[in-house]
Design a protein around this nucleic acid. Structure first.
Lengths: 349, 349
DNA sequence: TTGTACGCGTTATCAT
DNA sequence: ATGATAACGCGTACAA
């Protein structure tokens, strides 16, 4: 029923030239050969009239290049859907890819399926990968990279030399916690964004928390630490648990805005006022941080930029085709002080 | 450097059979032919040993099928990043696609680039499309569909017969507003999720608002309507503007949770208590709706299901290859009453 | 300046 | 039950 898409052959016939000429004209081949302006125009017109679009599969087969990159996430424990941040990153990737015409295949790894990175690359579906949520046990990534596949990680992968785009989680967390300490807090709790044992960023943020305390001569107390799981609900229960302690903290560093919103809710439920009775600092600066009450003090992470930088690095690696050891790209963060953090209320004295 | 991926030819050689046999074995060809179990196993072993993955481009060229579908959004005015809902839909799409092995190319239309739907389809990059944010002026969609390209819309496209997955926006909005009217409100405002003139869903929700009022004998007042733009900020300014009215509403229907959060903030800033002085009902039931204070009464929209149903319908259309006029899929919504809506405060008398 | 011919890796048809 | 062969559509070295 659909009258079969026109091929370069059809264009050639209509323009009364050979397929070679069509190809040269359409690809602007600068390879020494010259095409008369007249034929050039005839070819262009014919292509336009026929609505010709070169077939992607054929072109990719011939060129040995797909013109597609993959965005793969290994974050499957938590549903992707809950991760607002990921979306912003993808937005950045798309905005960088758009002008180049390179397409984006998005895939989520799953335990009951073959590793998408492997199949995407081995099948020649993509020319390179942007990978998030990679963990040390994803050894295939190293193999692919060693073979020359361009790969860029979002977030560091400890013990690998894969190129990555990231922020300095330790420093950012330290700055956030120092802000609390500067306000005069001495009992500061921490709710991670994820269990630190499974997530590099979570581990680093916890390390920043610890480091800030110790730089001020305060001791790190395990009992003031809880694990969040990327969502509000986990923040609610973690904060509730912290508030139940007799010597509860006067401030808490929550390593994710989404988790922090749950913490905020827990405080409301417990009748604990923020920031008077409890100071809260989040992490990410999602747009909602501005709009909750009180507005959330948080660490701004350039989500979109992470995506666009990752895409830029990847495209460069693909086009130079040299497995050029791109140095890590560490983007800057910024503490945004809003209303959820203030000095501790002096109850005694 | 990378030692060139093994081809079916390599597998054939290693297994001492022809490429034909390899193909039969690997594709489980049930086409009448039988392969001796011995050779079958030899082929399988060879493929495994070589780490053979069939080349996607070659397969697609030969099969005239890409094994890829596209997810295209025309929502470019507002950055995709702000649309948390879209992410949930994509999650649903991916979860449906995953087990089938069909890949997903994600793209956003842009004014300064050729329509992604056209190029994706014409280049044979995808076998079908899931499209969001389609507007009547995207006439190419109709052309593609008429030619037999499987297409599923998320959201209705007025004046077209394209298959779509949607909710009943009119009815859902009507239910939400009736909830406010049932509580005793008589002056009810409305903040749309987007300018209704450009967005079918926004227009429908506004229509539901109007319809609810009129069914109770209340008049629709243009002056109590504001337009949101998908984000919190627009909700803040819209609500502020409504609150400045001398005869301000005692309740407001906000056709998007994100916009509603801005409205909530505006109320806080203005010193207007929710729900005592102002009842608010949102739309979407994003996870954050539970965690703001007060928790937001809203309309639950099955975001993930929208995605998975769209994918399912699309896959069916692709595999039956009949341009089978799939009837529209209308998913159900549900009003979730939380704390942001209550009866009006009787100030006078 | 243009046309001819081959190959990219697969799958499907047809003999054997 | 298996193997040779053509074709999918394009890009390019080479010949004219």
């Amino acid at each position: 029923m659909p009258p079969r898409s026109p091929t370069s052959h059809d264009v050639a016939r209509l323009a009364s030239v050979s397929r070679t000429t069509v190809s040269y004209v359409l690809n602007n081949s600068d390879s020494g050969i010259a095409i008369s302006e007249a034929t050039r125009q005839r070819v262009l017109d014919a292509a336009r009239d026929l609505g010709y679009h070169p077939n992607a599969a054929a072109r990719s087969l011939r060129r040995q290049r797909a013109g597609v990159v993959g965005l793969v996430t290994y974050d499957t424990s938590n549903r992707m859907g809950s991760n607002a941040f990921m979306w912003l990153v993808m937005d950045g990737v798309l905005s960088e890819l758009g002008p180049t015409g390179v397409r984006l295949i998005v895939e989520a790894a799953s335990d009951d399926r073959p590793d998408p990175c492997v199949s995407l690359v081995r099948e020649g579906h993509v020319d390179g990968l942007i990978v998030t949520g990679a963990r040390p046990e994803n050894t295939e990534l190293r193999v692919l990279h060693a073979e020359g596949t361009p790969i860029v990680l979002w977030g560091r992968l400890s013990g690998s030399d894969l190129p990555y785009v990231d922020i300095d989680n330790v420093a950012a967390a330290r700055t956030a916690v120092e802000h609390l300490l500067d306000l005069g807090h001495t009992r500061v709790g921490c709710i991670t964004n994820a269990p630190p044992l499974t997530d590099t960023a979570a581990a680093d943020r916890l390390e920043g928390f610890r480091s800030a305390l110790e730089s001020r001569g305060l001791s790190f107390e395990e009992s003031l630490v809880r694990s969040g799981h990327f969502d509000e609900r986990s923040g609610l229960s973690a904060m509730t648990s912290l508030l139940e302690r007799p010597d509860r903290p006067t401030a808490v560093f929550v390593a994710s805005d989404e988790v922090a919103l749950g913490a905020l809710k827990a405080a409301k439920i417990a009748g604990v006022r923020v920031p008077d009775d409890l100071a809260i600092v989040g992490f990410d600066d999602l747009s909602i941080a501005t709009f909750v009450e009180p507005a959330l003090t948080t660490v701004r992470v350039p989500a979109g930029e992470i995506g666009s930088v990752a895409a830029r690095v990847l495209l460069a690696a693909i086009s130079t085709s040299t497995s050029l050891r791109e140095p890590a790209q560490v983007l800057t963060t910024e503490l945004i002080v809003r209303d959820s953090s203030g000095p501790p209320q002096r109850l005694s004295g």
